[in-house]
Design a protein around this nucleic acid. Structure first.
Length: 281
DNA sequence: CATCTTGTTACGTT
DNA sequence: AAACGTAACAAGAT
């Protein structure tokens, strides 16, 4: 589930543990979320250390401790949460950090998530090597266009899901952006006009900002009018064309929803009914 | 029982 | 060498 704003929300759930010591830890051994990590070392280092800070980059999380760094990727079903100090982990609770006043929990039933670990003095290499978040300001329209030019044959939907270029964008955000930009998800990245690229850029920023404001703040849904509310439904309809059933198809292996009226297969740049009033931004 | 899933990654092909 | 397409990963929901 977690994309940009969901990941930011989960990052904040552990804020209550900032400045507090880890008294002990519990992990589920033999789980693939720890692949490549020395579990013993992880537990030794975390025990007695203090949670100092946290940061997010795309869908990746980094927690700074006084003795080490803990990286978390939530995968498809990962979550962070907080429970009482006496918490007893269940089958999907892979890492528990016990503090005097609470326990911090990482759980992930589907095991696509991943834990990373480092004892380096400064930010670990695997963190600094990650591309900046798509909404960070380091990503410019020029960078976006250069990235798309390197993947000219990919559908724009598939390209938006590449974390090397759009760190943080996930399946629903990509659909939301393309619907608002009125670009058909199957369009080849290399076929997009400057106007279409401009619309994608604008809506990319708008959707990121809106997601952070609503979901990132308290995990509340985005406002009415977002494709978000319709795209999961089997009988979802376009928010601006209530009579138009959303198209649904797999593109690049992911379920994609779009409105055939807003997002026709070929661009029709001449006529865009309702373009000015129907959508924010 | 069959099919679906809001994410990567490995691997073979172009 | 890159870019590209697809299977695989695992487990719960429908």
């Amino acid at each position: 589930m977690p994309e940009l704003a969901e990941v930011e929300y989960y990052r904040k759930t552990w804020d209550c543990g900032l400045g507090a010591t880890i008294l002990r830890t519990a992990i589920r051994h033999r789980k693939r979320v720890f692949r490549g990590v020395d579990r013993r070392q992880l537990q030794d280092r975390l025990t007695g250390s203090v949670l100092l800070s946290s940061r997010v980059k795309g869908k990746q999380l980094l927690f700074e401790f006084s003795e080490c760094w803990l990286g978390i990727h939530l995968g498809m079903t990962g979550k962070l949460r907080v429970e009482e100090p006496s918490f007893r982990p269940g089958p999907h609770d892979h890492l528990v950090l016990y503090q005097p006043e609470r326990s911090l929990i990482f759980s992930d039933p589907r095991l696509f998530g991943r834990i990373r670990f480092s004892q380096d003095a400064s930010e670990p290499d695997w963190w600094t090597a990650l591309p900046p978040s798509v909404h960070s300001g380091e990503i410019t329209r020029r960078l976006m266009e250069r990235f798309l030019a390197r993947h000219p044959k990919l559908s724009i939907k598939t390209a938006l899901l590449l974390q090397s270029g759009f760190a943080g964008i996930g399946n629903w955000m990509a659909d939301e952006i393309l619907w608002r930009a009125r670009v058909n998800p199957k369009r080849a990245s290399g076929s997009l006009s400057p106007d279409e690229l401009g619309a994608i850029w604008k809506q990319l920023r708008w959707v990121c900002q809106g997601a952070m404001k609503h979901i990132g703040r308290d995990f509340s849904d985005p406002p009415k009018g977002w494709l978000f509310h319709e795209r999961w439904r089997n009988d979802g309809h376009c928010p601006v064309h209530p009579q138009s059933r959303l198209e649904r198809q797999k593109i690049g292996g992911r379920t994609t929803a779009w409105c055939s009226r807003c997002q026709p297969p070929k661009s029709n740049s001449s006529v865009r009914p309702g373009a000015s009033s129907a959508r924010p931004g």
